[in-house]
């Protein structure tokens, strides 16, 4: 294959590929991909919190229990209060820290 032929093929192939890529990439842009986040208390597994886990240890990965009410995790916006949390009095994650029910 000569360089010229190769480049001609590539130009058409590039146009097709780029056109397809633009179409595919445009779809999820507004959806979950770029979605806003909210802090959700009581839904993180032990050591998997994003931040805030009680006095003296307020940072990521420091929660010592699953679903600890003082630890939060970033979740997609509006999904917090529907996420199950066995320690929460409401049975779901909360937007503010809460005291674990025993």
């Amino acid at each position: 294959m000569t360089t010229t032929a190769n480049q001609t093929v590539t130009a058409a192939a590039l146009a097709l590929a780029l056109g397809t890529a633009l179409t595919i990439a445009a779809v999820p842009a507004g959806a979950a991909e770029n979605g806003a986040k909210e802090k959700c208390y009581g839904v993180a597994l032990k050591g998997k919190n994003d931040c805030a886990a009680g006095p003296g240890t307020s940072c990521a990965g420091t929660s010592t229990k699953d679903y600890q009410g003082s630890a939060w995790k970033l979740v997609p916006k509006d999904s917090c209060v529907t996420t199950a949390s066995p320690t929460s009095p409401t049975g779901h994650g909360q937007l503010a820290a809460f005291k674990d029910k025993s």
């Binding site: 190769n6 480049q7 590539t10 130009a11 192939a13 590039l14 097709l16 590929a17 780029l18 397809t20 890529a21 633009l22 595919i24 990439a25 999820p28 842009a29 991909e33």
Partner: peptide, 24 residues
């Protein structure tokens, strides 16, 4: 053009996938 030709030469390569991921 050069990069796509080089990448496709005897290797598994998907230009559409690459461009899609770059954009996404």
């Amino acid at each position: 053009g050069e990069a796509a030709a080089l990448a496709a030469d005897g290797a598994d390569f998907d230009l559409t996938r690459c461009l899609t991921v770059l954009l996404r």
